[in-house]
Amino acid sequence: MSGSISVDFVGHQFSETAEIVLADIKISVKAGQLVSLIGRSGCGKSTLLHIISGLLTPASGCVRIDGKTVTKPSAKWNMMFQKASLFPWMSVQENVGLGLKFSGASKGQIAQKTHELLELVGLKEKAQDSTQSLSGGQQQRVALARSLATSPSVILLDEPFSALDTFTRSALQQDVAAICKQKGITMVLVTHDIDEAVMMSDRVFVMDQNPGRIIDEIKVDLAWPRKHMSQHFQRIREDLLTAFKGTEKTESFRALDGSRYKAKSSAA
């Protein structure tokens, strides 16, 4: 199975004079694992995800996927954003098949794959519709199908459900996790929703800010599919909340090389 991710001492600043956004991030994710990055707004979760995807080059350290250093975006590690960002001049089917078109797949291959994926996300009957006629949840399902079309080994989710209503979000959380498990896709989810992290992940990394860094890791050893109301779910949720509350008190951070970063208090 492919899709292992190794984030090796990644640090980032947007310019030499700017504040350090990320410091010495070290994460290792096995192929097929589902992990979440959770933290307060501005702690650098999305920046880290952009670095993993190759959309952003880190100031220090590197990211490896299946042992190869990530230097640019690839259809093999696809990213989904908070906005579905569908192309409105294309039909639903054309949106889903776009990555395959870029890779030079034949019309027949594209038609077959898009048909399968639209069936998987429950939008088979919308194939020829305009994307502008879809609801927010349906648009995110199309974006998911589009991300899956190129058969990625890794899928990177940047708060993709945050703009959706509770019911749609819950359904999509279940579906995305199930699809990743079924297809053996490694998932990295950025979220600030603790329930979502527990619902969708095997491991949750808690991030603190100033500079952004990993301060804790919680293993989620719940059976699939998961239920919000189970005692075990609630216990893990409490563990995460405790770790999350810890981010309010942190004032400074000793990096792995022994240097100390000046960190502002994030207490409200």
Binding site: S53, L55, K72, P73, S74, A75, N78, M79, F81, K83, S85, F87, W89, M90, L98, G99, K101, F102, S103, R146, T150
Partner: peptide, 24 residues
């Protein structure tokens, strides 16, 4: 975000112009 998505899906420079910029 369309540029990000297209890059992520593996669009080359020509495909970016032909499939994304021109229709947009």
């Amino acid at each position: 975000s369309w540029f990000k998505v297209a890059k992520n899906l593996g669009a080359s420079g020509t495909q970016m112009v032909h499939r994304i910029i021109l229709p947009a």
